[in-house]
Design a binder for these strands. Structure first.
Length: 517
RNA sequence: GCCGCCAUCGUCUAGUGGUUAGGACAUAUGAUUCUCAAUCAUAAAACCUGGGUUCAAUUCCCAGUGGCGGUACCA
């Protein structure tokens, strides 16, 4: 088989939610498909009617699109192997279930749920007792004639063991006595996962079943079906899980998983999120790995290979994600980043996605929305000014959501302070006010001369600090608080040059008033 | 309970039958600096335990322990 013949599918339930964990699974599938030049297919597994959700498919496709993950075939894009939604394939499953009965690989079961429940005692083997396995033809016929509700179960092997190969975990062997007579068709006529997945993967020509490790010990059920039909087994690739930061359990929303949309809204770059996620459980070969671990999507596609996948689970670590994101932001450069930020504000923060229907909006999202509503028009008003302001801050942030706040003094007319915004360790507020009042005309002197330079500015401030016997740092800090409203900011001179002296002067005066009030 | 899988610094990982076990994030210290960030330098930090096999085991085998997953008319 040529690599370009590879067909890989993602098979989510249409819940509309894409969280960190499943985003990673989508990514792994995508990287494998693209790196082998194969096809990437989306199939919706909506066989549980209780969990059916309206619009969930659109939400998933939309979300992945935001990350530049696209499908070659899907319910929305179509393809030769449709329908790509399992609830639209019920006749197909019924037909193949009948075939299995004819082959004596499956049987009707009329057991009630109550009966099955009573079989399941805690701490004991809970496999089905195979009560209906040996009903004779007449009994089955009678029950069917009586319209008794029924299900169809696979007639799994009783003795021996099932062996199969996983591309990551190697040869797996499970005793057949461990495997239940899995239900294939439910009372409502819908197939179960293990049945539908085999039928569809076969019919859709899936060559590589790339899925989470939770299916590993269940795979013999799939093997049995492939073998019963006489179909060629696909290659199985089970991938380790992403665990909670504390290492307990699969990553859950409660313990740090965000929705895929929320990452973007908060101001993580799509490539940065994917960069991080790809590195969980996978690493490029030592010799070709980049020291800083920063990879673009293109690079990931080039480097990806399943023999570099780990077998063990990885923990989710937000600090590493933050590092990767800030690197991606820096690497982008101001020009490109400025465009992206404007796009981000409009299309990620202010926009409402289909996917938002399926996740609660967090408080920070509402607050971010408010501040972007306020500042985005100002940013857009003068893109050149925005780029200059951004150039001072973009290397100081970890995600874009910080921008409205850190850029505020470039845009606000008035600043507000609290006592914590001043370094009052060495000097009290009155002293600071007096000094600011004295330093103001000196600064004005500098900026009124168009020929001023960096040395001159430093000389004036330091000189005055010496004069009044202040530490240089204390004076810079006082000016900083006055003109930016914070104790931490980009370098002052550069900030003044961008915001203009008039604005800085106005802040100084406001600060003096505030300190004295 | 039973079954399957896994096990390198706090975290993500590289790597090996003989290595000073490498990198990244995070942490600490220092340099630089008007603060922050960045940068540079330095430090601390790991082969789960016990048996084998072997001249030699972190590496191979077995057991234990721990973790994850499965054991549904969920996927």
């Amino acid at each position: 088989m040529k690599r370009s013949d590879f067909r890989v599918r993602a098979a989510p339930s249409p819940t509309g939610r894409v969280h960190t964990g499943n985003l990673r699974t989508f990514l792994n599938n995508y990287l494998f498909a693209k790196s082998t030049n194969g096809k990437y297919i989306l199939r919706i597994e909506d066989t549980d009617q209780k969990r059916k959700v309206e619009g969930g498919i659109e939400a998933i496709v939309e979300t992945l699109g935001l990350y530049n993950i696209h499908f070659d075939e899907s319910p929305l894009a179509g393809g030769e192997y449709g329908p790509y939604i399992q609830s639209q394939r019920l006749d197909i499953y019924k037909k193949y279930a009948q075939q299995l009965i004819e082959k004596d690989c499956a049987y009707y079961c009329f057991c009630t749920e109550e009966r099955l429940k009573s079989l399941r005692k805690k701490d004991e083997r809970s496999t089905y007792d195979r009560h209906c396995r040996n009903l004779n033809e007449e009994e089955v016929k009678n029950n069917l004639d009586e319209k008794k509700p029924y299900i169809i179960r696979m007639k799994f092997l009783v003795e021996g063991a099932t062996e199969f190969r996983d591309e990551i975990y190697g040869t797996i062997k499970v005793k057949n006595s461990e495997i239940d007579d899995q239900v294939l068709l439910k009372t409502d006529g819908y197939p179960t996962y293990h049945f539908a997945v085999v039928i569809d993967d076969h019919l859709m020509g899936i060559t590589h079943v790339f899925r989470g490790r939770e299916y590993l010990s269940q795979t013999p059920k799939n093997v049995f079906l492939y073998d019963s039909f006489g179909w060629e087994r696909p290659k199985w690739i089970h991938t380790p899980h992403l665990l909670n930061p504390d290492g307990v359990g699969k990553l859950s929303k409660r313990k740090g998983a965000m929705s895929a949309v929320s990452y973007l809204r908060k101001g993580y770059l799509p490539d940065a999120v994917l960069n991080y996620l790809a590195l969980c459980g996978w690493a490029p070969k030592g010799e070709i790995a980049k020291q800083d671990e920063i990879y673009s999507m293109d690079e990931l596609v080039k480097l990806f290979s399943i023999d570099r996948m780990k077998k063990s689970n990885a923990r989710y670590d937000e600090t590493k994600l933050n590092y990767i994101n800030s690197k991606h932001i820096r690497n982008m450069g101001v020009e490109k980043l400025a465009d992206y930020v404007l796009h981000w504000g409009e299309n990620f923060v202010l926009n409402t996605f289909i996917a938002d229907k399926y996740d609660e909006t967090e408080d920070w999202e509402n607050e971010l929305k408010k501040s972007v509503e306020k500042y985005l028009p100002l940013w857009k008003q003068n893109v050149d000014y925005f780029k200059k302001a951004l150039s001072l801050e973009f290397e100081r942030i970890t995600y874009l959501g910080e921008l409205p706040e850190v850029l505020n003094f470039f845009y606000d007319e008035k600043l507000t302070w609290t006592d914590e915004d001043w370094n009052t360790k060495n000097h009290n507020k009155e002293e600071i006010a007096d000094v600011l009042e004295k330093v103001l005309p000196k600064l004005e002197g500098i900026f009124s001369n168009e020929e001023y330079n960096h040395e001159e500015w430093e000389k004036v401030v330091r000189g005055y600090a010496d004069e009044i016997n202040w530490k240089h740092g204390d004076l810079f800090l006082a000016i900083r608080s006055a003109t930016t409203g914070r104790l931490k900011s980009p370098p002052l001179l550069e900030s003044f040059e961008i915001m203009g002296w008039e604005k800085a002067k106005s802040f100084l005066q406001q600060a003096i008033d505030w300190l004295r009030k």
